[in-house]
Design a protein around this nucleic acid. Structure first.
Lengths: 251, 251
DNA sequence: GCCGACACCGTACGCCGTACGGAGACGGTC
DNA sequence: GACCGTCTCCGTACGGCGTACGGTGTCGGC
C-alpha cells in the first residue's frame, strides 16, 4: 500500500494549503482560476475511493477534471502534497457526534469511526502513518479522540499512547481488508482463484510432520476465517485491547 | 509504505521459486548461468536494507550485480515476485531458538522477534500484509508462532486471531519507526528541521479554545514522546495486548 | 556439425512526476 | 487605451520506472 506524503516539499506551503491560509486576496491580477484546490482534492478523493490510490496520477486526475496535467501544479505543488490534502479532507467526516458514554463505549466509538472511515476511503489507511499531516480535520479528530480517553486517570503520555495503540490497530487491521482488494484488482484473481492456483503447490510442499501445529490449526482456522478475516480480527482485537486497557484504567 | 507483491504473476511460478521446486535438473542444455535466484534475492535484500525498498529497482539491482537489467528476468518473472522472495528470505532469520517459557514470555518472544526482524529489515514490515507469501520460511515461522500460543485452552481460530493481532500490532508500530526514517530520507529534513518549519504555522492556526484537550496533552506528551516514539508505543502496546489476552487465556 | 534449449541483454514502449517556458487573461496605473 | 506585472493554463521534454520483444551467443545431446 503506497504511502505518499509531502516529500521534499515545503512544510510551510503544505500547512498553508491544509489550512487554506495561503493569502486569499480578494482581487488580484491574473485570470480567474477555473479550478481550485477544493475541486482538485475532491476529484482526487473520488478517484481514489473508486479505483485506489495508485490510480490517482496527475494525468488521470487532470483528465477527470477536464484540464491539462500541468494545470494542477498551479494549485498544488506536488503529488505528495495533494495526497496530504486528500487525507485531511476525509478526516473531516469523522465524529458527526463526539464519542460519548462510558470509556469503553467511547473507545469503541473511536475504533469504529476509524474503521468505518478506512472502509469508505481504503487508501487513507496507509496515508498519514508517518509524519502527522497537521490539517484542521486531523486536529479536530485528535481533540475529539483525546476527550474519549480523558478523565480516566491516565497521564497525558498514556492518553497519547492509548490513542496511538487503538489507531494503529485499526489501521493495521483494515489494511488487511484493503490488501485483499488490491491483490484481487492487481492480479485479476479472486481469493478463491488464487487459492485454487496455490493450494496444489502447498499440498506438494507442506509436510505435516515438519509443521504439526499448523497442520492442526490451519484446516480449522482457515475455512472459518477464509484465509484472513479483517472484520473478525477487528472485533477480536478490539475486545483484547479494551480488556488490556481496562487493566490500566481500573488499576 | 509500498507493498509490492506478486501482481498478475502466476501463483504456481511464485510457489516454485519460493520453494525452489522449479525443476532443478542437474544437466540441461544452454549456457551455465552466471547468476541465480539466491544471489539476486540476497543483493536485493542488502540494497533494501541499506536504502529502502524504493531503491530496489531492476536497473539498480542489476547494476549492483554487474549484469543488465533484463538479465534478472531470466531468473525471476517480475519485480513483485522478487519482493515476495526477498520477504521469505528474511523470515528465515527468526527464531534461532523457538519461543519458550510461560505463555506471556513466549508471546513476548514472538512480538520481539518480529520487531527485531523489522528493525533489521524495515521494508519487510510492509510486505506480506496482503495475501500470504507461502514460502518455506513463512511456514516455519507460522508453525513456531502457533506453538507459542498452543496449550492455552484457545480454539484454533482464537490461536490464529491472537497471532494476527500481535503480528499486526508489531508491524503497524514498527511502521511508524520506518515512516520517520523514510520521511527524513525523502524530504531531506530531520524531524527537528521539519518541526522547526512546521511549528510556526501550527502556532498560527492552533486555537487552544477550540482544541482544549490537545492544548493540555500535546505539550506534555509531545516532548516526552518526541512527536512519536515507536519503541515506547511498542512497550506500552505489548503490555496492553498481553493483559487483554490474559483475560482470554485465564478465563 | 546441427538443433533445441537456455542465459544474457539492448532497444523500445508506455507509464509516471514534474521542470521549464510560452501564451494569454486579468487588474492597476498612467 | 496602452503598458506592465501577476497569474492561470498547459505543451514539451526529460529522467525515472517495469518489462515486452527479439537478437546473439553458449551449451549439451544426438
Amino acid at each position: 500500500m503506497a504511502t505518499e506524503s509531502a516529500t521534499g516539499g515545503s512544510p510551510a506551503r503544505t500547512m498553508d494549503l491544509l489550512w487554506r491560509t495561503g493569502g486569499d486576496v480578494e482581487r488580484r491580477p491574473g485570470p480567474r482560476a477555473g479550478l481550485d484546490v477544493d475541486r482538485i482534492v475532491a476529484a482526487a478523493v473520488d478517484l481514489a475511493d473508486r479505483e485506489g490510490l495508485p490510480a490517482v496520477t496527475m494525468r488521470r486526475l487532470a483528465g477527470e477534471l477536464g484540464v491539462g496535467a500541468m494545470t494542477l501544479y498551479t494549485h498544488v505543488p506536488g503529488k505528495g502534497e495533494l495526497v496530504d490534502l486528500m487525507h485531511d479532507a476525509v478526516l473531516g467526516e469523522v465524529y458527526p457526534e463526539p464519542p460519548a458514554g462510558e470509556w469503553r463505549d467511547r473507545l469503541t466509538s473511536v475504533a469504529r469511526a476509524n474503521w468505518d472511515l478506512y472502509v469508505r476511503h481504503p487508501w487513507a489507511a496507509s496515508v498519514g502513518a508517518g509524519r502527522p499531516i497537521l490539517g484542521p480535520n486531523l486536529m479536530r479528530k485528535y481533540e475529539l479522540e483525546l476527550t474519549a480517553v480523558d478523565g480516566l486517570g491516565l497521564s497525558e503520555v498514556e492518553m497519547e499512547l492509548v490513542l496511538t495503540l487503538v489507531g494503529g490497530f485499526v489501521r493495521g487491521t483494515v489494511g488487511g481488508l484493503h490488501e485483499k482488494a488490491a491483490a484481487e484488482r492487481d492480479s485479476g484473481l479472486t481469493e478463491d482463484e488464487w487459492w485454487a492456483a496455490t493450494e496444489p503447490h502447498v499440498d506438494k510442499v507442506f509436510d505435516p510432520e515438519r509443521f504439526p501445529t499448523a497442520a492442526r490449526v490451519g484446516p480449522v482456522a482457515g475455512p472459518e476465517l477464509g484465509g484472513y478475516s479483517p472484520e473478525r480480527s477487528f472485533e477480536f482485537g478490539l475486545a483484547r485491547l479494551l480488556d488490556g486497557i481496562a487493566v490500566l484504567v481500573e488499576r
